[in-house]
Protein backbone atom coordinates (compact mmCIF):
# COMPACT_ATOMS: atom_id res chain seq x y z
CA UNK A 1 0.00 0.00 0.00
CA UNK A 2 2.80 2.41 0.94
CA UNK A 3 4.64 1.39 -2.19
CA UNK A 4 1.46 2.08 -4.17
CA UNK A 5 1.21 5.61 -2.78
CA UNK A 6 4.86 6.47 -3.33
CA UNK A 7 4.58 5.40 -6.95
CA UNK A 8 1.31 7.30 -7.35
CA UNK A 9 2.74 10.42 -5.72
CA UNK A 10 5.77 10.36 -8.01
CA UNK A 11 3.41 11.44 -10.79
CA UNK A 12 2.86 15.15 -10.09
CA UNK A 13 -0.06 15.38 -12.50
CA UNK A 14 -1.85 12.57 -10.69
CA UNK A 15 -1.54 14.33 -7.36
CA UNK A 16 -2.90 17.54 -8.90
CA UNK A 17 -5.75 15.55 -10.43
CA UNK A 18 -6.55 13.92 -7.11
CA UNK A 19 -6.72 17.31 -5.37
CA UNK A 20 -9.04 18.72 -8.03
CA UNK A 21 -11.17 15.59 -7.97
CA UNK A 22 -11.57 15.73 -4.20
CA UNK A 23 -12.58 19.40 -4.65
CA UNK A 24 -15.25 18.52 -7.22
CA UNK A 25 -16.62 15.72 -5.06
CA UNK A 26 -16.76 18.10 -2.08
CA UNK A 27 -18.56 20.66 -4.24
CA UNK A 28 -21.13 18.04 -5.20
CA UNK A 29 -21.54 16.84 -1.64
CA UNK A 30 -21.98 20.31 -0.15
CA UNK A 31 -23.86 21.96 -3.02
CA UNK A 32 -27.03 22.21 -0.98
CA UNK A 33 -25.15 24.03 1.78
CA UNK A 34 -23.20 26.38 -0.49
CA UNK A 35 -26.24 27.16 -2.63
CA UNK A 36 -29.29 26.28 -0.56
CA UNK A 37 -31.72 27.48 -3.21
CA UNK A 38 -32.71 25.39 -6.19
CA UNK A 39 -30.40 26.02 -9.13
CA UNK A 40 -33.48 26.32 -11.32
CA UNK A 41 -34.78 29.39 -9.43
CA UNK A 42 -34.39 32.82 -10.91
CA UNK A 43 -32.38 34.70 -8.34
CA UNK A 44 -31.33 37.76 -10.23
CA UNK A 45 -31.58 39.76 -13.39
CA UNK A 46 -30.95 37.77 -16.61
CA UNK A 47 -27.79 38.20 -18.74
CA UNK A 48 -25.59 39.42 -15.90
CA UNK A 49 -21.89 38.98 -16.71
CA UNK A 50 -19.59 37.61 -13.99
CA UNK A 51 -19.17 39.98 -11.08
CA UNK A 52 -21.73 42.46 -12.31
CA UNK A 53 -24.12 41.65 -9.50
CA UNK A 54 -23.15 40.79 -5.93
CA UNK A 55 -23.88 37.16 -5.13
CA UNK A 56 -23.60 36.13 -8.77
CA UNK A 57 -19.84 35.99 -9.19
CA UNK A 58 -20.08 33.77 -12.27
CA UNK A 59 -23.02 35.75 -13.67
CA UNK A 60 -26.60 34.70 -14.45
CA UNK A 61 -28.17 32.97 -17.42
CA UNK A 62 -30.91 33.95 -19.85
CA UNK A 63 -33.56 33.50 -17.17
CA UNK A 64 -31.62 35.02 -14.30
CA UNK A 65 -30.52 31.75 -12.71
CA UNK A 66 -27.16 31.74 -10.90
CA UNK A 67 -24.39 30.07 -12.94
CA UNK A 68 -22.28 29.20 -9.90
CA UNK A 69 -25.22 27.45 -8.25
CA UNK A 70 -25.82 25.53 -11.47
CA UNK A 71 -22.21 24.39 -11.57
CA UNK A 72 -22.24 23.25 -7.93
CA UNK A 73 -25.46 21.28 -8.34
CA UNK A 74 -24.44 20.04 -11.80
CA UNK A 75 -21.39 18.39 -10.23
CA UNK A 76 -23.78 15.95 -8.56
CA UNK A 77 -25.20 14.64 -11.81
CA UNK A 78 -21.75 14.34 -13.36
CA UNK A 79 -20.28 12.40 -10.43
CA UNK A 80 -23.41 10.25 -9.99
CA UNK A 81 -23.74 9.32 -13.66
CA UNK A 82 -19.99 8.84 -14.05
CA UNK A 83 -19.68 6.44 -11.13
CA UNK A 84 -22.91 4.45 -11.45
CA UNK A 85 -22.82 3.94 -15.20
CA UNK A 86 -19.15 2.93 -15.02
CA UNK A 87 -19.90 0.46 -12.25
CA UNK A 88 -22.67 -1.11 -14.30
CA UNK A 89 -20.57 -1.18 -17.48
CA UNK A 90 -17.56 -2.70 -15.70
CA UNK A 91 -19.85 -5.32 -14.17
CA UNK A 92 -21.24 -6.35 -17.55
CA UNK A 93 -17.84 -6.15 -19.23
CA UNK A 94 -15.98 -8.20 -16.62
CA UNK A 95 -18.57 -10.96 -16.64
CA UNK A 96 -18.80 -11.12 -20.44
CA UNK A 97 -15.02 -10.92 -20.89
CA UNK A 98 -14.28 -13.44 -18.16
CA UNK A 99 -16.73 -15.99 -19.52
CA UNK A 100 -15.46 -15.55 -23.09
CA UNK A 101 -11.79 -15.63 -22.16
CA UNK A 102 -11.88 -18.49 -19.69
CA UNK A 103 -14.11 -20.93 -21.51
CA UNK A 104 -13.02 -20.00 -25.05
CA UNK A 105 -14.32 -21.90 -28.06
CA UNK A 106 -17.88 -21.29 -29.18
CA UNK A 107 -18.82 -19.29 -26.08
CA UNK A 108 -15.91 -16.98 -26.77
CA UNK A 109 -16.85 -16.55 -30.43
CA UNK A 110 -20.48 -15.82 -29.57
CA UNK A 111 -19.72 -13.32 -26.81
CA UNK A 112 -17.05 -11.54 -28.84
CA UNK A 113 -19.20 -11.28 -31.96
CA UNK A 114 -21.87 -9.72 -29.79
CA UNK A 115 -19.31 -7.33 -28.32
CA UNK A 116 -17.94 -6.42 -31.72
CA UNK A 117 -21.48 -5.78 -32.92
CA UNK A 118 -21.99 -3.31 -30.09
CA UNK A 119 -18.70 -1.64 -30.80
CA UNK A 120 -19.61 -1.17 -34.43
CA UNK A 121 -22.70 0.89 -33.61
CA UNK A 122 -21.67 4.51 -33.09
CA UNK A 123 -21.87 4.85 -29.31
CA UNK A 124 -22.93 8.49 -29.08
CA UNK A 125 -25.77 7.95 -31.52
CA UNK A 126 -26.93 4.77 -29.79
CA UNK A 127 -26.86 6.47 -26.39
CA UNK A 128 -28.91 9.38 -27.68
CA UNK A 129 -31.44 7.12 -29.36
CA UNK A 130 -31.78 5.01 -26.22
CA UNK A 131 -32.36 8.00 -23.98
CA UNK A 132 -34.87 9.45 -26.43
CA UNK A 133 -36.80 6.18 -26.70
CA UNK A 134 -36.71 5.37 -22.98
CA UNK A 135 -37.65 8.98 -22.16
CA UNK A 136 -35.06 11.27 -20.60
CA UNK A 137 -34.38 10.59 -16.92
CA UNK A 138 -31.32 10.01 -14.79
CA UNK A 139 -31.97 6.26 -14.92
CA UNK A 140 -32.32 6.07 -18.68
CA UNK A 141 -29.13 8.12 -19.08
CA UNK A 142 -27.21 5.77 -16.79
CA UNK A 143 -28.56 2.71 -18.61
CA UNK A 144 -27.75 4.15 -22.03
CA UNK A 145 -24.20 5.08 -21.06
CA UNK A 146 -23.61 1.69 -19.46
CA UNK A 147 -24.91 -0.09 -22.58
CA UNK A 148 -22.53 1.76 -24.88
CA UNK A 149 -19.51 1.59 -22.53
CA UNK A 150 -19.13 -2.07 -21.60
CA UNK A 151 -17.57 -3.50 -24.80
CA UNK A 152 -14.01 -2.20 -24.27
CA UNK A 153 -14.00 -3.69 -20.76
CA UNK A 154 -15.20 -7.02 -22.11
CA UNK A 155 -12.43 -7.04 -24.72
CA UNK A 156 -9.81 -6.07 -22.19
CA UNK A 157 -10.85 -8.68 -19.65
CA UNK A 158 -11.14 -11.34 -22.33
CA UNK A 159 -7.65 -10.58 -23.57
CA UNK A 160 -6.25 -10.78 -20.05
CA UNK A 161 -8.08 -14.02 -19.40
CA UNK A 162 -6.96 -15.54 -22.68
CA UNK A 163 -3.30 -14.93 -21.93
CA UNK A 164 -3.57 -15.80 -18.26
CA UNK A 165 -5.55 -18.96 -18.97
CA UNK A 166 -2.58 -20.49 -20.78
CA UNK A 167 -0.07 -19.23 -18.23
CA UNK A 168 1.50 -22.13 -16.46
CA UNK A 169 0.41 -21.14 -12.96
CA UNK A 170 -3.22 -21.34 -14.05
CA UNK A 171 -2.63 -24.70 -15.68
CA UNK A 172 -0.94 -25.81 -12.48
CA UNK A 173 -4.07 -24.82 -10.58
CA UNK A 174 -6.11 -27.01 -12.88
CA UNK A 175 -3.72 -29.91 -12.48
CA UNK A 176 -3.94 -29.77 -8.67
CA UNK A 177 -7.70 -29.90 -8.98
CA UNK A 178 -8.95 -26.38 -8.20
CA UNK A 179 -12.49 -25.65 -9.39
CA UNK A 180 -13.16 -23.24 -12.28
CA UNK A 181 -14.74 -20.67 -9.99
CA UNK A 182 -11.79 -20.79 -7.63
CA UNK A 183 -9.32 -20.51 -10.47
CA UNK A 184 -11.13 -17.49 -11.89
CA UNK A 185 -11.42 -15.79 -8.51
CA UNK A 186 -8.02 -16.56 -6.98
CA UNK A 187 -5.66 -17.08 -9.90
CA UNK A 188 -6.83 -15.07 -12.89
CA UNK A 189 -8.93 -12.17 -11.64
CA UNK A 190 -6.38 -10.76 -9.16
CA UNK A 191 -3.78 -10.77 -11.92
CA UNK A 192 -6.00 -9.04 -14.46
CA UNK A 193 -7.47 -6.43 -12.16
CA UNK A 194 -5.01 -3.58 -12.46
CA UNK A 195 -5.65 -2.78 -16.14
CA UNK A 196 -9.37 -3.00 -15.43
CA UNK A 197 -9.06 -0.48 -12.60
CA UNK A 198 -7.14 1.90 -14.83
CA UNK A 199 -9.67 1.53 -17.64
CA UNK A 200 -12.56 2.01 -15.26
CA UNK A 201 -11.10 5.27 -14.00
CA UNK A 202 -10.86 6.55 -17.55
CA UNK A 203 -14.39 5.34 -18.26
CA UNK A 204 -15.73 7.56 -15.51
CA UNK A 205 -14.29 10.49 -17.45
CA UNK A 206 -15.84 9.32 -20.72
CA UNK A 207 -19.19 8.78 -19.02
CA UNK A 208 -19.17 12.33 -17.68
CA UNK A 209 -18.44 13.63 -21.17
CA UNK A 210 -21.20 11.51 -22.66
CA UNK A 211 -23.74 12.58 -20.04
CA UNK A 212 -22.92 16.20 -20.74
CA UNK A 213 -23.38 15.62 -24.48
CA UNK A 214 -26.77 14.00 -23.91
CA UNK A 215 -27.86 16.89 -21.72
CA UNK A 216 -26.44 19.35 -24.23
CA UNK A 217 -28.77 17.91 -26.86
CA UNK A 218 -31.71 18.58 -24.53
CA UNK A 219 -32.15 15.01 -23.29
CA UNK A 220 -31.10 15.61 -19.67
CA UNK A 221 -33.13 14.80 -16.59
CA UNK A 222 -35.49 17.73 -16.12
CA UNK A 223 -35.22 17.53 -12.35
CA UNK A 224 -31.47 17.70 -12.11
CA UNK A 225 -29.25 20.60 -13.14
CA UNK A 226 -26.45 19.43 -15.44
CA UNK A 227 -23.40 21.12 -16.93
CA UNK A 228 -24.25 19.89 -20.40
CA UNK A 229 -27.77 21.30 -20.13
CA UNK A 230 -26.39 24.72 -19.13
CA UNK A 231 -24.16 24.83 -22.21
CA UNK A 232 -26.97 23.62 -24.46
CA UNK A 233 -29.31 26.28 -23.14
CA UNK A 234 -26.71 29.02 -23.61
CA UNK A 235 -25.57 27.87 -27.03
CA UNK A 236 -27.78 30.23 -29.03
CA UNK A 237 -26.69 33.29 -27.08
CA UNK A 238 -22.95 32.67 -27.35
CA UNK A 239 -22.52 36.02 -29.13
CA UNK A 240 -24.03 37.99 -26.27
CA UNK A 241 -23.13 35.92 -23.24
CA UNK A 242 -19.90 33.85 -23.42
CA UNK A 243 -19.85 33.16 -19.66
CA UNK A 244 -23.02 31.09 -19.72
CA UNK A 245 -21.37 28.37 -21.78
CA UNK A 246 -17.76 28.97 -20.79
CA UNK A 247 -17.94 28.19 -17.06
CA UNK A 248 -19.93 24.93 -17.20
CA UNK A 249 -17.68 23.76 -20.05
CA UNK A 250 -14.62 24.61 -18.04
CA UNK A 251 -16.07 22.66 -15.11
CA UNK A 252 -16.39 19.59 -17.33
CA UNK A 253 -12.90 20.12 -18.70
CA UNK A 254 -11.20 20.39 -15.32
CA UNK A 255 -13.14 17.46 -13.84
CA UNK A 256 -12.46 15.13 -16.73
CA UNK A 257 -8.83 16.25 -16.87
CA UNK A 258 -8.47 15.49 -13.16
CA UNK A 259 -9.93 12.01 -13.57
CA UNK A 260 -7.66 11.25 -16.50
CA UNK A 261 -4.62 12.40 -14.55
CA UNK A 262 -5.62 10.22 -11.62
CA UNK A 263 -6.07 7.34 -14.07
CA UNK A 264 -2.52 7.80 -15.36
CA UNK A 265 -1.27 7.89 -11.79
CA UNK A 266 -3.10 4.64 -11.07
CA UNK A 267 -1.51 3.15 -14.15
CA UNK A 268 1.96 4.14 -12.94
CA UNK A 269 1.24 2.75 -9.51
CA UNK A 270 -0.41 -0.50 -10.57
CA UNK A 271 1.62 -1.40 -13.66
CA UNK A 272 5.06 -0.05 -12.78
CA UNK A 273 6.85 -2.03 -15.46
CA UNK A 274 4.54 -1.05 -18.30
CA UNK A 275 4.49 2.58 -17.26
CA UNK A 276 8.25 2.78 -17.31
CA UNK A 277 8.45 1.20 -20.73
CA UNK A 278 5.94 3.68 -22.04
CA UNK A 279 8.05 6.58 -21.00
CA UNK A 280 11.42 5.46 -22.30
Amino acid sequence: MIEFWTRFARNKGAVFGLVVLVGVIALAAFAHMLFPQSPWRMTGAPFQPPGAQPGHWLGTDTLGRDIAAGIAHGARVSILVGLVSTAVAVGIGVIAGAVAGYFGGLIDTAVMRFTEFFQTIPSVVLAIVLVAILQPSIESIIIAIAIVSWPPVARLVRGEFLTLRTREFVEAARVIGQSDTRIILTQILPNSLSPVIVTASLMVATAILLESAIAFLGLGDRNMMSWGYMIGAARTVIREAWWMSFFPGFAIFITVLAINLVGEGLNDALNPRLARQGRQ
Partner: peptide, 22 residues
Protein backbone atom coordinates in the same frame (compact mmCIF):
# COMPACT_ATOMS: atom_id res chain seq x y z
CA UNK B 1 -3.79 14.74 -25.75
CA UNK B 2 -4.56 15.52 -22.12
CA UNK B 3 -6.49 18.62 -23.16
CA UNK B 4 -8.26 16.90 -26.04
CA UNK B 5 -9.33 13.96 -23.88
CA UNK B 6 -10.93 16.33 -21.38
CA UNK B 7 -12.67 18.82 -23.67
CA UNK B 8 -16.32 18.20 -24.55
CA UNK B 9 -16.32 18.31 -28.32
CA UNK B 10 -19.38 20.58 -28.61
CA UNK B 11 -17.91 23.01 -26.09
CA UNK B 12 -14.67 23.15 -28.06
CA UNK B 13 -16.79 24.06 -31.10
CA UNK B 14 -18.53 26.83 -29.18
CA UNK B 15 -15.25 28.22 -27.90
CA UNK B 16 -13.78 28.22 -31.41
CA UNK B 17 -16.85 30.12 -32.62
CA UNK B 18 -16.39 32.58 -29.79
CA UNK B 19 -12.74 33.11 -30.69
CA UNK B 20 -12.68 33.00 -34.49
CA UNK B 21 -16.16 34.23 -35.38
CA UNK B 22 -17.40 36.45 -32.57
Amino acid sequence: ALAAYATPIYWLGLMLILLFSV
